[in-house]
Design a protein around this nucleic acid. Structure first.
Lengths: 151, 151
DNA sequence: GTCGGACCTCAAGCACACTTTAGGTCAAGA
DNA sequence: TCTTGACCTAAAGTGTGCTTGAGGTCCGAC
């Protein structure tokens, strides 16, 4: 007997995501359920892992657009294997390492500045990022942490 | 002869901020210029540093609300000294350290998972944050980095 | 047959950090 | 006198990642 697929409600329950969020991910092209005769969404079991991936990737600070890019690299015509996921996770790690390094550089620069209390405009390295946030233009700024522990 | 204060245009030019951003910060209670006879904003020189602080703090991932909290700790009735700024920068550093530590934990957990390629729902530590993003409710999610280098 | 629950769509709302737009004031320079 | 530029206010728009709401379908249980 055939596997009839998981309902959106089951997906929500198993992943902890809200039903609305899962639908939103579909709009954004992150999951692609099929529909049953009644027009209800049906998900493959592999989609559970896709959703999980999204959740984790978000904790790591990636945007949905970036996550979509990663997910698009998964094979379309067969279920992804452990190795597929591992490859993606490794790519992940690189991004994460880069981010940590960036923060550490920032911290070291700050250390150099605490003594002088400068925060002065021309001299201070903190204002001359190099990795110019300026290129970005309008829109929200993606911040560094979820809820900063202390400050 | 008295110091007549800096115009918003001068502030923008010196800090690199947009005029609209500076006005926005005023709405948010981060700077408080006075007005001249014609109703134009006039800024103290010390406000340059306030704005600079905001810019740096944002690079460090703090929200404007958090930055306001820090700025509110500056003395009101005298110009802030080097030491005032240094104290604040140090508080900053603590927050930053916490954030880096958080990311590193996340990375280590990921390392443990890459081998198994698991991303499985019950078992995997990545899904059981502990520091529950779940508490948050609606609203935007603050992400980890500005523009991830690689991924 | 009608009730509840799970699902559907489409549109609007929210938070943050701004920018953009529309419409107006004011002072200096040609 | 007219124009230009810098400034003013208030309101609406932008982008991300959702949620909420309104209004409707579908199916099993009572």
């Amino acid at each position: 007997m055939a596997f009839e697929g998981l309902s959106i409600g089951e997906m929500a329950e198993r992943t902890g995501l809200a039903v609305s969020a899962i639908r939103y991910y579909e709009d954004e092209g992150l999951v692609a359920p099929w529909r049953n005769a009644a027009g209800r969404r049906r998900y493959q079991r592999a989609d559970l892992r896709r959703l999980s991936f999204i959740m984790v990737a978000q904790r790591f600070g990636f945007t949905l657009a970036q996550i979509r890019t990663e997910l698009d690299r998964l094979p379309r015509h067969r279920a992804p294997t452990k190795r597929d996921w591992a490859r993606i996770s490794a790519g992940f790690r690189d991004g994460l390492d880069a981010r940590i390094a960036q923060l550490e550089t920032l911290r070291d620069t700050l250390d150099g500045c605490i003594g002088c209390g400068c925060l002065s405009l021309q001299a201070c390295k903190l204002y001359n990022p190099g990795d110019a946030a300026a290129e970005k233009g309008a829109g929200p700024r993606y911040l560094l942490g979820d809820r900063p522990a202390t400050m």
